[in-house]
């Protein structure tokens, strides 16, 4: 039984309405995620001040530290202070650099994260530029020539590389291209004054590692999405209308495949965001991931929170983007009844 569509007073085009709805949902998710990330500080054990400031910290310095964190205020007030700051680019102050004496050499989190953010985005973008076209090409060709030796060997290879941890791939590449045949630098020492070419050269091994890891996933999922589509009756109909295999894929399958493919890409770029953490550590790449790992080791909570918020936002945004592409390529929404 089909529900009658109730037209509101403000009759938006369904595509716009659906996109707005998705954006709204994304914002709500982001809001809850920020609450979760924020609340984590409340889970800290009570003696945290001593842990950060050292055993020798006086009661006054610990109290001052707690006051600075706002631990004496209600959680709701602190949350809105924090999120208000985040929106304005104020991410708080790092714990590190504090000492029991009360002398504060700590830096602001924004200052710490700023340049690293750029580096991480650069690495992710470089990887995406290599990996996405490559994976799409491999996935589409594997679907086109399915069950040939090409497809089968691609299947076994990707199934194998999916199982590799990032650092395994990274060290193999370092061993081969960094030390045995030293073609590329095995430490990605990216500096601010480098030219684009120098940057790319310095980041090539980390980018290659990430590419190997996500291409396998992306290719398998692209292949599955297309094969799924090729089983639909309208593809059989296209073949029965005498369309060539190439036109069947390009004209009949692909226009309907954008939504699943966008999902595949977004999913893998989101995965990339996470993979970046390990790879940055291996190559000592000065990005947000490495910063976060260091901050976790030293339990520098404000930095951890800021990094987590960054990764989560990137993740939510990418998934949102996939949804939006799926919506705008859906003929049912584009051309309502």
């Amino acid at each position: 039984m089909r529900t009658a569509r109730v037209e509101g007073p403000l009759s938006l085009h369904p595509v716009l309405a659906t996109i707005l709805k998705r954006l709204g949902l994304g914002l709500i998710t982001l809001f809850f995620v920020s609450i979760i990330i924020f609340s984590s500080i409340n889970l800290l054990p009570g003696d945290f001040g001593e842990a950060v400031l050292g055993q020798a910290a006086t009661e006054e310095t610990v109290a001052a530290f707690r006051r600075e964190l706002g631990l004496d205020q209600p959680a709701v007030v602190r949350y809105f202070d924090w999120i208000g700051g985040v929106v304005q680019g104020d991410l708080g102050t790092s714990f590190s650099g504090r000492a029991s004496s009360g002398i504060d050499r700590s830096r602001s989190v924004a200052e710490l994260i700023g340049p690293r953010l750029e580096n991480t985005l650069f690495l992710a973008a470089l990887t995406a530029v290599i990996a996405v076209p490559l994976a799409l090409f491999l996935g589409i060709t594997a679907a086109l020539w399915r069950n040939t030796w090409y497809d089968k060997s691609a299947s076994v290879t990707t199934l194998t590389t999916i199982s590799f941890p990032e650092f395994f791939v990274a060290y193999i590449l370092i061993l081969l291209l960094g030390t045995l045949w030293p073609v590329f630098p095995s430490l990605a020492n990216v500096q601010e004054d480098m030219t684009l070419g120098q940057r790319v050269y310095a980041s090539i091994l980390p980018a290659l590692t990430l590419t190997l890891v996500i291409v396998a996933h992306m290719m398998r999922m692209t292949r599955a999405a297309i094969i799924n589509l090729l089983a639909s009756p309208y593809i059989e109909m296209a073949r029965l209308k005498g369309e060539s295999p190439r036109r069947v894929i390009l004209k009949h399958a692909l226009p309907n495949a954008w939504a699943p493919i966008a999902t595949v890409i977004a999913f893998n770029l989101a995965y990339l965001v996470v993979g970046v953490v390990v790879v940055e550590v291996v190559f000592v790449y000065p990005g947000v991931g490495q910063l976060m790992v260091d901050a976790v080791s030293s339990r520098d909570i404000p930095v951890v929170q800021a990094c987590a918020l960054f990764f989560a936002s990137a993740y939510i945004l990418l998934n949102l983007l996939a949804d939006v592409i799926g919506i705008v390529t859906n003929p049912r929404l584009l051309h309502p009844k």
Binding site: M237, G242, P255
Partner: peptide, 25 residues
């Protein structure tokens, strides 16, 4: 050779029209 005939000399009407039309065109 067959593709030249299919869709011109030899055509086909499928059971489920809803599924056999390409939703994108």
């Amino acid at each position: 050779e067959k593709r030249r005939l299919w869709g011109t000399q030899l055509t086909y009407v499928a059971q489920s029209a809803a599924a056999s039309f390409n939703p994108a065109h």
